[in-house]
Computed example of a mutant assay.
Amino acid sequence: MKRLTVVPAGAGVLSALRAALAGGDALLVSAGEQVPEGLPDVVEQRIALVVETSGSTGRPKRVALSADALLANAGASESALGGPGQWVLALPTHYIAGLNVLARSLAAETEPVVVEGEHFTAAEFVAAVGRMTIPERFVSLVPAQLATLLDDAAASSALSAFAAVLVGGQATPGPLLDRARAAGIRVRRSYGSSETSGGCVYDGHPIGTTEVRIVDGEVWIGGPGLAEGYLGDPELTAERFPTADGVRWFRTADTGSFDGEVLTVTGRRDDVLISGGVKVALGAVERVLRERPGLSDAVVVAIPDERWGEVPVAVTAAPLSTLDAEAVVEAGAAVAAALGPAARPARIVRWDALPLLASGKVDRLAVRARLLGGDG
């Protein structure tokens, strides 16, 4: 057994992670100074890092990762990206994506450059790039951050010099990817989770020795980057990390297909509503809406309905100029044409801003709560 040390997100995380990966105390990075409740004093010897999941669609979990898993992921990422380099840290270090940047930096023996400021801005990103000392440059972003940088000429120009720009955290709208590529940015879509030590599939291709299989429509991931399980929850660990055909797997709860080379993720097993007896995948509705002009940030949640049982409702922060009555009708018609009439959003609501988690992901629970509270 070894001690579990809690470190607040900030400047001390890199050295604490270095020590944890070298066999020292296990590490949990907290969002603030307050220590999370219910943590054990000690954990199994193999555990180097405990990551609290964001809870964007359910209750938070504590994912226990070994040093071997984290370093295997870092090595696979380095190989997939063409070699080592210097990273910009633009994501919170109490989430796996930010910790990935630090782990990759430690594996590459390079110093990460931090985007300063309480909130991510194009100006602070450009300032961080100015502090970089190695020509081979990498950064990991969520889609909202990429959109922010593309809206700024100086930031977009700086980003175009990067060897790779990983984008993950949520489904990245096709128009945003097209816009980035048109600006000369080498964008790579990253898929993974805390349970897989972060991104383990780039542009649909498993990296390193990551394995993918589809079981009853669900994406399963195998390989050396898998977590040990969930801290203090052996039942959930057994459920989500089964062993089949002699291989240990992680059941992602995502739906998708895999042709032996390319993984296509189509949605979440738990994002299906039943409207008038017809199953509707919320992720599929989102994908259609996000292809519409001005709706690249659309989020769809299930809302109770007296007649149909449940209906999809979409929320966006699109500018008023792009979301007139005609655009709403056309967007709904596009969904109905692609997915059937039951999938057509009951309404498309515009807010000034979407509620976000600290990771940059949309807080879907907050979206649904606001809608249920009458905001839209």
Rank of each mutant, 00 (worst) to 15 (best):
G204V: 13
I221D: 03
G232V: 03
L231V: 11
G204D: 14
G225Y: 00
L226Y: 02
D216M: 02
G229S: 12
S193E: 09
D203H: 14
A227K: 08
G192V: 12
V215G: 00
R189V: 15
R186H: 15
G208A: 09
G198K: 07
I214R: 06
V187A: 12
S193K: 10
C200R: 09
E195H: 06
P234G: 06
G204H: 13
G222P: 00
V219P: 15
G229E: 05
Y202Q: 04
I207N: 04
E218C: 05
G192C: 05
G225M: 10
D216Q: 10
S190M: 14
Y191W: 14
C200P: 01
I214A: 06
R186C: 05
A227P: 08
G229C: 09
R189I: 10
S190D: 15
H205N: 05
L226G: 00
E211C: 02
S190F: 07
A227H: 07
G217Y: 01
G225P: 07
V201N: 10
V219D: 14
Y230Q: 07
H205K: 08
G223Q: 04
G223E: 03
D203W: 14
D203T: 13
I214E: 04
H205L: 11
R188V: 15
E195D: 14
V201D: 09
S197V: 09
D233P: 07
S190C: 14
V212C: 02
D203F: 15
L231H: 07
G223A: 03
E211R: 01
L231Y: 07
H205S: 04
I221H: 05
G222I: 01
L231W: 14
G204M: 11
V215F: 10
G192H: 08
E228H: 09
V187L: 15
L231A: 04
T210K: 04
I207T: 02
E228S: 11
W220R: 03
Y202M: 11
Y202F: 15
G222M: 02
V212W: 10
T209F: 00
S197R: 02
R213P: 01
G225S: 10
S194L: 08
G225E: 11
G198I: 06
S194D: 03
Y202S: 02
E228T: 12
